[in-house]
Design a protein around this nucleic acid. Structure first.
Lengths: 332, 332
DNA sequence: ATGAAAGCGCTAACAC
DNA sequence: GTGTTAGCGCTTTCAT
């Protein structure tokens, strides 16, 4: 701000930051000049001095995936309200890009980060001397985290498919390295076992978290001799791919084949889709994560304090056989 | 970087930025120390000096909308590759928030911005002394812009619905203030007129760009005495809302009612949806915008040079009556 | 090839 | 209530 005006820089700073100790008249005068000049404070200079940037870093795999888009959206809503902004980094599920992006965020001296890590990078994140919140995963109490009880989600799916009377379940996952996916499979398998249904390795497939991947996997599974009669999918995109293949190949859903997704992306509820799925409260994930980060930012004790495990929920729709009984239906 | 090591800051700077004029031995030594210390350059300090931040601002209405999510995704992909990062700001279609976010970006001294403006703020953007690319809209040659020929999109829809034999078209738009929406309506109406079909004001409705809005609007339209037999919707979300209502109320699509969307969001192609729509090349929009911005950044002449108008395309699927003839079908 | 030093725009003592 | 000033971590002349 041009100091061509008759006050010192200190006074300007005090005024513009609403600090006390400025004569109301001076304050008003400065404010007017600032407005007239369209003054915009240089946040970099401020950051240099204060070691605060008002920016939080968000590392997510893929924002074209509505699941992450909604999380990002919820995070932003919360942090905007607190005067923060975010730099969103997407990794495309690529570890190297993720590492690179992380460095960039650090170079930008973000106040904190919210991230969905690839497993390989967990240690790297753990050692970061910065406020952070991890989304999903690992029950690693070195972090603040917000996660979904994926194992329970798997159990819920197993119960439901079994209740529906399906006999030959299959699991179609995304990335095999994904911890959340493994947990879903684990819960699925263990609950099936309790119900005396075996989930053989031949009916477990991994691909990616995409429509195409689901389409591919189900095509392979139905080529085998022991055909599954139902599919628990790692996410809704995969399930949509499965449904697409089933529809194209004239498999009757839900009677000839049941499909359960994971996430409850918003279009899963459309009348034309009506996908039975395990809902993750995406908005809550993002909102809680943001709140946790802001709490960490305002807390000088660096030890993690937030460990939130959110419960998934069965949303029974039309891609599995309707049960008359006690299930939770979409419209109770 | 602690200067506890026997070289001057200048040498460190030269080394780390790959400037010439450093003895290879010194260079290596410095590099090693930097690596060992996990040195992370303070980008704010650098920015203060260089007036460059390597950050570009992205202002979009709503990232939960897959249309904008895909644009953001494409933008990021391109700018990452050039060593830039982005701050993504979402406005929730709220002008005040948009203005606020814009100020924040300016305070952060972003190198440039890519934005989808609300009409009220266009002047504000125009006066910004910063590299910028506008997405969609206004044919305003004061800007670099990447836009869709919305009017042509409306004409295409009119041609198609008319070819299908529908007689009583309706238009269900999003925000009435949206220029792109008005252009679609304009093209729609003018082409209908050429074909001797009148689009009365009673069959034109606006709401928002959401499923709920489409659902509401169609319900009102079908309550009227002159019932439309087909709907051209401002975007695919609206169309999905329309389809939902139609499905719940047992209107047979496409025979009793035709529906055309706009955007071709990826789930519109699902077997269960098969929405006829006017495709916008979302990825191209984002990619071109990013390229244009980078070009502007590297060009010291501030005058806008990029004016790209992308053509929408009819994707005929199952929510309109199939034509045997010359239409462009999804799978030719 | 390297160092010294100024200065980017701001904040926060500290003095008056 | 206001001004002076040091310094945040860098880049970049200008000397040497």
């Amino acid at each position: 701000m041009a100091e061509a005006w008759g006050v010192s820089y200190a006074t300007v700073s005090r005024t513009l930051n609403g600090r006390s100790g400025v004569d109301p008249k001076t304050r008003e005068k400065v404010q007017r000049v600032a407005d007239r000049l369209g003054y915009s404070p240089n946040l970099h200079a401020r950051s240099l001095k204060t070691n605060q940037t008002g920016i939080i870093g968000l590392i997510l795999p893929d924002i074209s995936n509505p699941f992450f888009a909604d999380i990002a959206s919820a995070v932003n809503k919360v942090i905007y309200a607190q005067g923060y902004n975010s730099i969103l980094c997407t990794t495309g599920w690529d570890v190297e890009i993720e590492e690179k992006q992380l460095s960039v965020l650090l170079d930008h001296r973000v106040d904190g980060i919210i991230f969905k890590p690839s497993p390989e990078l967990t240690e790297r994140y753990a050692n970061l001397p910065i406020a952070k919140v991890m989304i999903s995963n690992a029950q690693d109490r070195r972090f603040n985290f917000v996660e979904i009880d994926n194992r329970e989600g798997g159990r819920i799916a197993a119960d439901h498919l079994s209740d529906c009377g399906y006999q030959a379940p299959a699991f179609i996952g995304g990335d095999e390295d994904s911890r959340s996916n493994r947990d879903r499979l684990r819960g699925f398998r263990e609950r099936l076992k309790e119900r005396r249904i075996e989930l053989s390795d031949k009916t477990v497939r991994f691909g990616g978290f995409s429509i195409e991947s689901g389409y591919q996997s189900v095509s392979t599974l139905l080529d085998q001799s022991d055909r599954p009669d139902c599919f628990f999918c790692g996410n809704d995109l995969i399930a949509l791919g499965v449904l697409q293949f089933l529809s194209e190949n004239r498999y009757a859903v839900p009677n000839a084949a049941g499909v359960v997704g994971f996430d409850d992306v918003y279009f899963s509820s459309l009348p034309q889709i009506q996908l039975t799925t395990i809902r993750q409260p995406r908005h809550e994930i993002g909102a809680y994560a943001a709140q946790a980060l802001i709490a960490a930012l305002e807390n000088d004790d660096p030890r993690p304090t937030t460990h939130i495990t959110l419960q998934p929920q069965l949303i029974a729709r039309n891609t599995t056989i309707r049960q008359s009984s006690k299930q939770s239906q979409e419209t109770p």
